[in-house]
Simulated scan of single mutants.
Amino acid sequence: MKFLAALVALATPTFAHADDWHGIWTTDPSACQYKDMIGEHDPTPVLYSATSFIGYEVRCDVKRSERISTLPAWRITLSCMGEGMSYDEERLLMISEDGRLWEFDGVWEPMGFTRCE
């Protein structure tokens, strides 16, 4: 029986964990040197956490995050303030097999991010 359980575990696709999208990310790995200056330096990495998103000149509160159970992906709802404007937006975040975070906002082309270590 233990053998069967181990076999099923090996055959089951590995999905990202609930907090895999949390962290400091960048489109350009050389920008990771500025990870202590998030939101203050251009170029800058971005920070995704359970409660906030911080990018260059923009800060958002995470109002809702919902795991999409069939994918290693999450739908998040943000309430943002940046450059004197406030707005709400939804994003789809997905972790690819190579560990990259893909961000889809429905307006711009999808952006791929590498985690800053």
Rank of each mutant, 00 (worst) to 15 (best):
S49Q: 04
T51F: 06
S52C: 07
I54T: 09
I54C: 02
G55D: 09
Y56H: 15
E57G: 02
E57L: 14
V58A: 11
V58C: 04
V58N: 02
V58R: 03
R59K: 10
C60Y: 08
V62L: 06
V62F: 14
S65P: 00
S65V: 14
R67I: 07
S69P: 07
S69I: 08
S69L: 05
T70H: 14
L71H: 09
L71M: 13
P72S: 15
P72T: 15
A73N: 04
W74R: 01
R75V: 13
I76H: 04
I76N: 02
T77A: 03
T77L: 02
L78M: 08
S79Y: 08
S79A: 09
S79P: 00
C80T: 03
C80Y: 07
M81R: 12
M81E: 12
E83R: 15
E83N: 14
S86A: 13
S86Q: 12
S86R: 11
Y87F: 15
Y87P: 01
Y87G: 05
Y87A: 10
D88Y: 01
E89L: 09
E90V: 09
R91G: 00
M94H: 10
S96W: 00
E97C: 04
D98C: 03
D98G: 04
R100K: 13
L101M: 14
F104K: 01
D105K: 05
D105A: 00
V107D: 11
P110C: 09
P110Q: 10
